[in-house]
Amino acid sequence: MTLNILFFTITIKKREISLEEAVHDEVVEKMYEENKDRVAKYIRPY
């Protein structure tokens, strides 16, 4: 009888974001919220 076992290790590190990425994410979030508000004006509430 042969028993084959596969061992592997998963390492998880916290990702550090740069200042540029943080600023970009804020701009994208702001644009998303503005567009969401703009679309909400055209949707009729039922």
Rank of each mutant, 00 (worst) to 15 (best):
Met1His: 12
Thr2Gly: 11
Thr2Arg: 14
Leu3Met: 13
Asn4Glu: 11
Asn4Cys: 09
Ile5Glu: 05
Ile5Ser: 02
Ile5Ala: 03
Phe7Ala: 08
Phe8Val: 01
Phe8Gly: 04
Phe8His: 10
Thr9Cys: 04
Thr9Ser: 06
Thr9Asn: 09
Ile10Tyr: 14
Ile10Asp: 08
Thr11Phe: 08
Thr11Asp: 11
Thr11Ile: 12
Thr11Trp: 03
Ile12Cys: 07
Lys14Asn: 12
Arg15Ile: 13
Arg15Gly: 10
Arg15Leu: 15
Glu16Val: 14
Ile17Cys: 04
Ser18Lys: 04
Ser18Ile: 00
Leu19Gly: 00
Glu20Asp: 01
Glu20Met: 14
Glu20Val: 10
Glu20Cys: 02
Val23Asn: 11
Val23Asp: 13
Val23His: 10
Val23Ala: 04
Val23Cys: 04
Val23Met: 07
Val23Tyr: 07
His24Arg: 00
Glu26Pro: 03
Val27Gly: 02
Val27Lys: 10
Val28Trp: 00
Glu29Asn: 14
Glu29Ala: 12
Glu29Ile: 05
Lys30Phe: 13
Met31Ile: 13
Glu34Cys: 15
Glu34Asn: 15
Asn35Ala: 05
Lys36Glu: 09
Asp37Lys: 15
Arg38Met: 00
Arg38Leu: 10
Val39Pro: 02
Val39Cys: 01
Val39Tyr: 01
Ala40Asn: 02
Tyr42Gly: 04
Tyr42Glu: 00
Pro45Glu: 15
Tyr46Cys: 02
